[in-house]
Computed example of a mutant assay.
Amino acid sequence: MQDGERSGEVIIERRGTAGVIRLNRPRALNSLTLPMIRAIAEALHVFAGDPEVASVVISGEGERGFCAGGDIRALHESARAGDDLAATFWREEFRLNHQIASYPKPYVALMDGITMGGGVGLSSHGRHRIVTERTRLAMPETGIGYIPDIGATWLLPRAPGEAGTWLGLTGLDIGAADAIHAGLADLQIASPRLGAVIDVLSGLPRGSSSSDLDTLLQGLSEPPAESRLRQNAAMIDRAFRFDTVEEILAALAGEEGDFAAETRRVLSTRSPTSLKLALRLLRAGRRSGSLAECLGRELGACLQMLDNPDFFEGIRAAVIDKDRNPKWSPASVEAVEAATVERFLKPVEPPLSL
């Protein structure tokens, strides 16, 4: 695999002892398609069994983004057509997330530029997560009538305090310092030095450990700026400690300052159903014992999304008509019935096989 597969939506090659995976849809911000997921999963399988490969690194082509998530237009069309593409996409994507989290060799993700949704799944489950000054990371799903998936209900509850709840409900993007604070990344390395990262990895001795990589990557890193989430941690923890969206909104209304006001304003634009379901899943994830448990629960909710009007409306407003003015149904958090949320929590059949 020295020369690798150099065309198509994923470029796979070996440089020295490094297995390299490059997402190759730069005009689409490297958004994931089902063939891309399958190509990445197969490459990881091959690299894991290749004794000449000491580590694996994944990056995105172009300067705008690592990966903006799944191809939601394709998922929207699949749901409209009633075919099984969306269900197959989610099942295979979630299996890939678990494969990354349990990968037997050092796995390095270069999270340069936009890293959202499925892009977080390709990176934050890995062992070595590198952000740059250009990183903009988000789980923006509540803004399109969807939910944080890709194992986010495992990752976000393990952020300090309620930072993960803030991220999952608001869907707002954060930079490198906040990503490190939230436990979704490890080191900041300047974007011009990413080539040096791959050079270092290509010369890594076979059998090197993740601790060996930690030392090497630390030598290329730079201190992150001050984290805005850390600066506002006390307020976030006070307001987002509750188990209902109504209580969170009420708590935000009693907080002073621009950060709290902006947070409350953003929440008012998100799908009320998505907010309630996301919070329920995040709290369940906090009590869960494994990533696999969270992925299975998320898959069940995702499949129910195919009958959720907010899912279609959110994608329409964001990527089809692009009017950025979704009409949610129901339109308020108070109008979302408990039975509506419960409908999304049915165990998935057949279960997710990992």
Rank of each mutant, 00 (worst) to 15 (best):
I130W: 02
T132S: 06
E133F: 09
E133T: 06
R134K: 15
T135P: 13
T135K: 05
T135Y: 09
T135N: 08
T135I: 13
A138Q: 01
A138K: 01
A138E: 01
G143Y: 05
I144C: 11
I147D: 03
P148I: 04
D149L: 10
D149N: 14
D149Q: 13
I150G: 01
G151V: 02
A152T: 04
A152L: 06
A152Q: 08
T153P: 00
L155H: 00
P157T: 08
P157I: 08
R158W: 06
R158G: 12
A159Q: 02
P160R: 03
P160M: 05
P160W: 04
G161A: 12
E162K: 12
E162F: 11
A163Q: 08
G164E: 04
T165A: 15
W166L: 15
L167V: 10
L167C: 10
L167W: 07
G168M: 07
G171Q: 07
G171S: 08
L172E: 09
D173T: 10
I174D: 05
I174Y: 13
G175R: 10
G175S: 09
A176D: 07
A176N: 04
A177T: 03
A177P: 09
A179Y: 05
I180V: 11
I180L: 03
H181Q: 11
A182V: 08
A182L: 04
A182W: 06
A182P: 10
A182D: 05
G183V: 12
G183N: 09
G183K: 06
G183R: 04
L184A: 03
L184H: 04
A185C: 06
A185D: 05
D186C: 06
D186P: 06
L187I: 01
L187F: 04
I189L: 03
I189F: 01
A190L: 15
A190M: 13
P192R: 02
L194V: 05
L194E: 03
L194C: 03
L194N: 02
G195T: 10
G195K: 11
G195H: 06
A196L: 15
A196K: 15
A196P: 00
V197D: 07
I198R: 13
D199W: 10
D199Q: 14
L201D: 09
S202W: 10
G203Y: 02
G203N: 06
L204V: 13
L204R: 07
P205W: 05
P205N: 09
R206K: 14
G207K: 04
S208E: 07
S208M: 04
S208W: 08
S210T: 07
S210K: 00
S210Y: 00
S210H: 04
S210R: 06
S211D: 12
S211P: 00
L213P: 02
D214M: 04
D214H: 12
T215G: 05
L216V: 08
L216D: 01
L217F: 02
L217Y: 03
Q218R: 14
Q218C: 07
Q218Y: 11
G219D: 07
G219M: 02
L220A: 02
L220V: 00
E222M: 13
P223W: 00
A225V: 05
A225H: 07
E226A: 15
E226M: 10
R230Q: 14
R230I: 00
N232H: 15
N232G: 02
N232D: 13
A233S: 15
A233E: 12
A234V: 14
I236D: 12
I236F: 14
I236H: 13
I236R: 12
D237P: 13
R238M: 12
R238I: 10
